[in-house]
Design a binder for these strands. Sequence first.
DNA 1: CGGGATCCAATACGATACTG
DNA 2: CAGTATCGTATTGGATCCCG
Lengths: 125, 125
Amino acid sequence: MTEGSDYQHTCLIRGDGGRMLRTVLDRIANKWTLLVVATLDQNVVRFTDLHHQVPGISQRMLTLTLRNLEKDGLVTRTVHPQVPPRVEYELTSTGRSLIPPALALAGWAIENVPEIEARRALQEE
Amino acid sequence: MTEGSDYQHTCLIRGDGGRMLRTVLDRIANKWTLLVVATLDQNVVRFTDLHHQVPGISQRMLTLTLRNLEKDGLVTRTVHPQVPPRVEYELTSTGRSLIPPALALAGWAIENVPEIEARRALQEE
DNA sequence: CGGGATCCAATACGATACTG
DNA sequence: CAGTATCGTATTGGATCCCG
């Protein structure tokens, strides 16, 4: 939304007391959601493939994460009636629109985490 | 590998298995951090003012949030030796650099949360 | 004024086992 | 293959009281 000025619109963050932002954070601010979204961005993915492509995630957490994303309309779940079952997950357009903000955060992470971790290490001596 | 502009760099997110991104999320993905950062972006702020400007936060959580931000070098804490004490908080340059990604997320929130909440409401009938 | 200490409830997460 | 069910632990956040 073309915020072309250099004035920092922190009102966007604090706007309604931060309720909107917190609603989003409550959903994505966990261990797996953004990783799953990022993985789905590449293509339509089956459950097991997702399980392999997100290293460390348990079946339980993958299921929970996907169910939550589905409830919010960020992911579609398609069951192909076969034996063995074939279930595919795909981002909706809303889900895909989350990628750029996620990338912004990831970019910041890559630039600043090394410094942050160095600082943490110093203080734990 | 910096030429493909429309290529989705989700590798930024998944890069190291998402460790960097998760490190950042572990810090900011809580109820108060981004709200405190957004409030501090405007000026140097005293503890009590912060307490009033972030509605709903408890003293305990404000203290914890500020301590964590300080440990990571995103916020400076300045104690003025007076009675009664005067303690001021301010963003570091690293802390200020977090504002744009936070705004990106907040912008996404404002555009999409209404739809998400409508969908949630439908499913809880 | 700016916290710290303590207690408590809720939730998030992981491990394991089982199933149509 | 794609889950569900159950259990146990760790972490998070809120409430309250106290202190220099």
